[in-house]
Design a protein around this nucleic acid. Structure first.
Length: 490
RNA sequence: GGUCCUGUGGCCGAGCGGUUAGGCAGAGGUCUGCAAAACCUUGUACAGCGGUUCAAAUCCGCUCGGGACCUCCA
């Protein structure tokens, strides 16, 4: 375990030394998806980013409890209290039960996460499974005087709270600015203040998802679930709370207010926010409609995509950018990553059969591992890690070409480096495009390669080239080397 | 309008006071029957204008671009 981990904290807007509350335990909460439609890539980027955080903290020896919720209740469609519940709306549209929608998209979400090789969180609580906790928290906030009831709906009193605490801590905003920038209250509005938000919402007669509460039948408000669930599983104050940047201004700001109002302490010490994903410079979002689905990306079945890219290529692509920078999707960039990733994985295979030489290595191998550690300690700088891995690739290939030397010990160091960083920390797996590669196919290919090599020896290049060209049409690539001919799927 | 982020070579993308980022593409070379792959060499980039400093892509100011949040979204 190291004590020089730096994490950029949105609260202070700078990198801070990470000091967990209860070493070696670490509590990590990440806002999960709302499961009323397919996850899109932006969501994936956030979850992949935190997958790295989780993996790395585990790698250095912390015992991490990673909680990521599933939002399957609440969330009004519009900003008006009489808006429809997202699940109910979609359900009516498709004539199915709300929980059927929830189930379908939860399964889809899990499937995508596993394609991207994201580790499942330690706990994945659902909002509907924690109605009691949300009601309890709401009650406590009312008791403490920071919320009021209006016609069966409970509102959080932001202006009262702001007199005692800094409501805009996360995004560094003044209350007056926030107020003047918010919408004016409508005449019939029940809210006292413009910034007040609902903790509990009274269900209209036709509302499908509803629960009994001290204030009548209703459903939880927009932000309370994360406060209630993080508190339940990680405690009143825990280490890291993460999510997409778009959540900071509203969702996380309100979470902090709720927790303060309930427990009188800040919920999390470190707030981490991942940046947005853009397509041709524009933010990919559900409402903008410019988001292709992970599935589209894998198949290439989308007007914006020239071809499909494998999940691991996409994961690698995302890691070449720091999580706090925006990441722009383009075919060019994706194709560059595809080639780079392939080269990295080829080197990993080469490493397995690399021959050690007498004496010392010609390159400094142990330095690479130190560089990778330092990069990850510096706010999870995966691009730097990858740059160092490519230095290792260069060395491996040079040794393989007989242009550099490597000791037995250093081969072991490199193998460990690759396993630790590529597989464990970055979560990159060799893609078995060659999963189709099986024994009988291997035998067939060996035969074909033998025939071609015979032809080559007889200088019958017409035949040998024909074999190579035709195989290439079938996406099988032959490469001649000193040690014989290798083949792989393109 | 308010709060904040950002502008790096053909493209993507690190760095954020002095030292080679890296990937992809390009050029030259080695290898090869030819390819492919691999390796070696190579490009002398930091929006513009000022300022601070022995030293600035990196700090400060201004100008001009981009973007996010302030409304559901990761």
């Amino acid at each position: 375990m190291n004590s020089n981990q730096l994490i950029y904290n949105t609260l202070s807007r700078k990198k801070e030394v990470f000091k967990p509350l209860h070493i070696p335990l670490v509590g990590l909460y990440v806002c999960g998806p709302t499961v009323y439609s397919d996850v899109h890539l932006g969501n994936c980027r956030t979850f992949i980013s935190f997958d790295i955080v989780y993996r790395y903290l585990c790698y250095v020896g912390y015992k991490v409890r990673y909680v990521r919720n599933i939002t399957d209740a609440g969330h009004l469609e519009g900003d008006r209290d009489e808006g429809e519940d997202k699940f109910a709306k979609k359900a009516k549209l498709e004539l199915v039960e709300p929980m059927e929608i929830v189930q379908r998209y939860t399964l889809g979400f899990h499937s995508v996460m596993s394609h991207f090789n994201c580790m499942p969180p330690s706990i994945e609580p659902t909002a509907t499974g924690h109605i009691v906790e949300q009601i309890e928290m709401t009650k406590k906030i009312i008791e403490n005087g920071y919320a009021y009831e209006a016609n069966g709906t409970i509102y959080f009193d932001v202006e009262k709270y702001a007199k005692e605490e800094n409501y805009g801590v996360l995004t560094n905003r003044e209350l007056d600015d926030l107020i003047s920038n918010s919408r004016e209250l409508h005449g019939q509005d029940e809210k006292k203040g413009r910034l007040d938000f609902a903790l509990w919402i009274k269900a209209q007669p036709d509302h499908l998802m509803r629960w009994q509460s001290p204030w009548g039948e209703g459903f939880p408000g927009w932000h309370i679930e994360c406060s209630a669930m993080s508190r339940k599983y990680l405690g009143d104050t825990f280490d890291i709370h993460g999510g997409g940047m778009d959540l900071a201004a509203t969702h996380h700001t309100n979470e902090i207010a709720q927790s303060q109002a309930c427990n009188h302490n800040t919920p999390a010490n470190y707030w981490m926010h991942t940046n947005m994903l853009t397509v041709n410079g524009v933010r990919m979002s559900k409402s903008a409609g410019n988001g292709f689905l992970p599935e589209d990306l894998f198949t290439g079945n989308h007007p914006l995509l020239e071809k499909g890219y494998s999940p691991m290529t996409v994961r690698f692509f995302m890691m070449q950018t720091h999580y706090r920078s925006t990441l722009d999707f383009s075919n060019e960039a994706l194709q560059a990553s595809e080639k780079g990733f392939k080269r990295l994985m080829e080197a990993m295979k080469t490493l397995e059969k690399l021959n050690a030489s007498e004496g010392k290595s010609t390159s400094n191998i142990s330095e690479l591992k130190q560089n990778c550690d330092a990069a990850m300690n510096d706010d999870f700088n995966t691009p730097i890690v990858i740059a160092n891995l490519f230095e290792a690739v260069r060395i491996i290939n040079s040794v393989n070409d007989g242009k550099e030397k490597i000791s037995v010990e250093d081969i072991a160091v490199l193998k460990k480096l690759f396993n630790d960083y590529i597989v464990e920390v970055l979560g990159l797996l060799p893609e078995e495009t060659s999963s189709a590669k099986n024994d009988s196919l291997d035998t067939i290919m060996k035969l074909i390669v033998d025939i071609r090599n015979n032809a080559k020896q007889n200088k019958d290049y017409t035949t040998s080239d024909k074999i190579r060209d035709e195989l290439l049409k079938a996406n099988i690539e032959l490469k001649d080397s000193k040690d014989g001919t290798n083949w792989n799927f393109k």
